[in-house]
Design a protein around this nucleic acid. Structure first.
Length: 440
RNA sequence: GUGGGUAUAGCGUAGUUGGUUAACGCGUUAGAUUGUGGUUCUAAAGACCGUCGGUUCGAGUCCGACUAUCCACCCCA
């Protein structure tokens, strides 16, 4: 036997037995997006490296050490997308979609790539549900995307997801705040850890985040961004808080939320779960009013979020949430002998044309193993075909849930099966049907 | 990039102070009198015990290195 090749570090296979979990969240997510009027966009897995350097920021960790960059045959270098926003904005501009009127609302479900050391809830290839909205400054828009994220989490059945909220202001108020921060931390220079000393120059807000006990102690006494917001930013934040409260959405003001992607302005938020380990941020996002012009478009206010699908599924599993059960076989056709197998194949084909999931034996098993197999794959009905059925044209269709057998003929097989099937589905979905009826 | 844990069949585990053909459960395949699944019973297949090296008469068991994986830091979804 040749040696097995393993999957690359930090990647995950979705095998058939777990694919339904992905179908569930993909369905929930795109359904919620549609209810809020967001349209899907799909962009390339790789982009010109410069796109990320300009948008995500050349001091960010993502750009400085986590990108998968390849040089192409020409002179350009390409990078596997580390996040979705930059590519989405680029595509909106390049295709002139921004000119179609505001607000523009888009969503995507995509794989992203970052070269990090994997751990619980953190992969090198991970999947993100993201939404972006362009062309509105209104705090209602900020509230809208938070509400959308909340709807998704609720639809997933999740509990105990905390919303952390902050405002990091616009470039003007942030500059003042940075100056104040630098002054404060510079006075405690001797006590700060090495990494924080570096941060002092480049991005002093990061010190607020430091896990070192000494630094975080110092950070407690540091100036707060919220005290430095300009009038417009402060008003915006106040309005947002009022709207959220009127929606009944609970939130916690957390001045430590800073966001590692440089393009954020004003509103930043995170939905955090405590159930999945250290990487608890299920959804993170905010406003980035400067990004569109940074990427060469007309100055356009914008905002959005990214939601980690692996983390979402992880949290759902941890909390025992329901996933949509995978579709199982409607009817399994058991065959005995070559002639019967040929007939089963033909029957399966005609049932499939009518939209049913029909299967028959493909490996040459005996009657009993075929019955076992039918049971294992969750077949709702089974029909056995042998020489006597082929001769007489009379068959029995067995309901696997009740064990009940019903007479039918090969000539009118599909009609008989359809009647049985409708009955059975009604019986199984009785409760569910009630739920749906009450919703409508 | 820096720490710590783990590594035995497809999956989950046991393997006693180093001692013969590495055990069990689930799963898989098949059988339990003539053509009907789930429960039960029986049997079979399936592992160079992560890799390489060392200690020893003898290593799944002890030591070392490497690799993989998990968790944490960092950062983020």
């Amino acid at each position: 036997m040749a040696k097995l090749i393993q999957r690359p570090k930090g990647t995950q296979d979705v095998i058939p037995s777990t694919a339904y979990k992905w179908h569930t969240v993909e369905h929930i997510v795109s359904d919620a997006a549609a209810r809020f009027g967001f349209k899907e966009i799909r962009t390339p897995v790789f982009e010109d490296t410069g796109l990320y350097v300009r948008s995500v920021g050349d001091t960010s960790d993502v750009v400085t050490k986590e990108m998968y960059t390849v040089s192409s045959k020409g002179d350009a270098t390409f990078t596997l997308r580390p996040e979705g926003t930059a590519g989405a904005v680029r595509a909106m501009l390049e295709n002139g979609v921004m000119n179609e009127g505001f607000p523009q609302k888009i969503y995507y479900i995509m794989a992203c790539y970052r070269h990090e050391k994997p751990q619980a809830g953190r992969l090198r290839e991970f999947h993100q549900f993201g939404i972006e909205m362009f062309g509105t400054q209104s705090p209602y828009a900020d509230a809208e995307i938070i509400l959308l994220a909340k709807s998704v989490l609720d639809d997933c059945g999740l509990k105990n997801i905390e919303l952390n909220l902050n405002s990091i202001g616009c470039p003007e108020c942030r500059a003042k705040y940075h100056a104040a921060l630098k002054e404060y931390f510079a006075s405690k220079k001797d006590e700060l850890c090495d990494t924080c000393l570096e941060r002092l120059d480049k991005n002093p807000m990061r010190i607020l985040d430091c896990k070192s006990p000494i630094c975080s102690k110092i950070a407690e006494g540091a100036p707060k961004i919220l005290d430095y917001l300009c009038e417009d930013c402060a008003n915006h934040f106040e309005s947002l808080k009022k709207i959220l409260t009127s929606y009944g959405i609970e939130y916690k003001i957390n001045p430590k939320i800073v966001r590692g992607l440089d393009y954020y302005t004003r509103t930043v938020f995170e939905f955090v779960s405590t159930d999945i380990g250290a990487q608890g941020t299920v959804c993170g996002g905010g406003r980035y009013d400067g990004l569109v012009s940074e990427l060469g478009g007309q100055p356009t206010p914008a905002l959005g979020f990214g939601m980690g699908l692996e983390r979402l599924i992880l949290t759902m599993e941890k909390q025992g949430c329901d996933f949509i059960a995978p579709k199982t076989c409607d009817i399994y056709l058991v065959s005995m002998g070559a002639d019967a197998q040929a007939k089963c194949a033909a029957l399966a084909a005609s049932l499939r044309e009518e939209g049913y999931s029909a299967e028959f034996d493909l490996v040459g098993r005996g009657l009993k193993p075929q019955m076992r197999y039918a049971d294992k794959i969750g077949a709702k009905f089974v029909c056995v075909l042998g020489s006597s059925e082929l001769e007489t044209g009379n068959v029995k269709i067995k309901n696997m849930r009740t064990g009940e057998q019903t007479d039918a003929t090969l000539a009118k097989f599909n009609e008989s099966f359809e009647a049985l099937y409708i009955n059975e589905v009604l019986a199984i979905d009785n409760d569910l049907a009630g739920d749906i009826a009450s919703l409508l």
